[in-house]
Amino acid sequence: MRLVYTHRLKSDMVLARPLVSEEGTLLLAEGVPLGESLIHRLVEVGVPFVYVRDDRFPTDRVQPLVSPQSLRRVTADLRGVLVQAAQDHASSSLTLSLEVLGSQVEELICEVLSQPDLVVHLLDLKSCQSYEVQHGVQTLVLAALCAHRLGLPREEIRILGLGALLHDLGKVFLSPGLMSKVEPLSEEEWKEIRRHPEMGAGLMEEHRDLWPLASEAALSHHERLDGSGYPDGKREEQVSATARIVAVADVYDALTSPRPYRPVPFSPLKALRHLQLGAGRLYDPRVVEAFSSLICPFPVGTWLRLSTGHVGLVTEIHPEAPDRPVLSVVRLEGKGPLPQPLRVDLAAHRDASVRAILEDEDSVVLHRLEDEVPDPFDPPR
């Protein structure tokens, strides 16, 4: 199994992992041949990459953090809340939906934190579903894992998780099409977007008995330590612990997701570098450090070029050292393919280091480790 970006897919490739819709409906099953029409459709709908079969790398060692059943339930409930909030945020049916969503969140957090290896891989939760729903669930899981790594008690993690899931609730009140606009936003459009934290927090305050303190995540997830954030320009200790954690999870997921204005998402490594550059100025350095320890910068199925010149595919991840994966090396750059794949464990070979992330084994570079990372002061929408 290996990861292939959709614009590099070929018609003789076979899908190694299924693609599902927002409702949990199977769109493409494992084992489906990827003909030209399917490849064109994947590119058209914005799927950035898929896993394909490769007999040289037969084993899928990645276990999902969340079961498909749990993911399906919470995404369906979140979608219902977003629709009801946009239609009538004071209705009793919305209150009932929030109660159901709250119980689903609690179950999902318990499931995630019970996993033995709390390392986040590239495609743990991402699928063919609307960005708003996917982003909410992914931010919930990332924030809960980070809070757990920081040692927060389970009840605080539950409350934080609820706020993380609905941190962008206020976006249901924005002008249609604003978040999917490809062109640069005008100043008036940015002003409208910067209102969504207050609108989301205001709606959650109406249901405060269900969401004690969770509205803080919606209100302050765009605040930054240096006062450059919004809506209130809070600084340092004015930014709550909840908001600091959700902010990091929110930015990471936004950067690693394809958007209309940025079709090619950041690699996990590039997104982590972005956060690390902003640590201490924009983001809480303790939160960034804890978060970074959870993220696998080189997910299974990723091609890497090493300092030794070897090119190989990541086949295993060490949970205790996710930045030192196991590779199946297939070629030495400049000297052609090896007679057979060579297993190289970077945790045991400290003299070798990763120099570049590649799109494919032909050494098309996706990201060099020495490449400049975009300024963290230029935030995603």
Rank of each mutant, 00 (worst) to 15 (best):
R195Q: 13
R149A: 09
Y51W: 04
P376L: 09
P48D: 00
Q340P: 02
R331D: 11
Y230D: 11
L346F: 04
L332S: 13
R305N: 08
E223C: 09
R286Q: 15
D60Y: 06
E370G: 05
P58M: 00
R259A: 11
R331E: 12
K335R: 15
L96R: 15
I109P: 07
G202E: 07
L269K: 15
S103N: 10
A76F: 07
S240G: 13
G102Y: 07
G31E: 03
G336W: 07
Q129E: 09
L123I: 07
R194D: 11
D117F: 13
P58L: 07
Q340K: 15
I245Y: 08
P380F: 00
R281A: 13
D54I: 06
T139C: 01
H7M: 12
D362R: 12
P260E: 10
E372Y: 03
V246H: 00
L203T: 09
A29C: 03
G102M: 05
P376Q: 04
P231I: 00
P212K: 08
L282S: 08
V81H: 08
G151S: 07
V251F: 03
Y51L: 10
H318K: 04
L203Y: 03
L82R: 00
L327E: 05
V62I: 12
Q115F: 04
S130H: 13
S267P: 00
F377D: 15
L42C: 06
R259T: 12
P322I: 01
A90K: 08
Q104Y: 12
E370S: 15
V314A: 04
P325W: 00
S67P: 09
L34R: 06
E205L: 15
M179Q: 09
P64Q: 00
E30G: 01
V172S: 06
P376G: 03
Y283K: 05
V20F: 14
M13S: 01
D378Q: 14
L38C: 05
D124L: 08
R208V: 14
V330A: 10
H121L: 08
P265I: 04
A243C: 05
R381F: 12
H349P: 03
T25F: 14
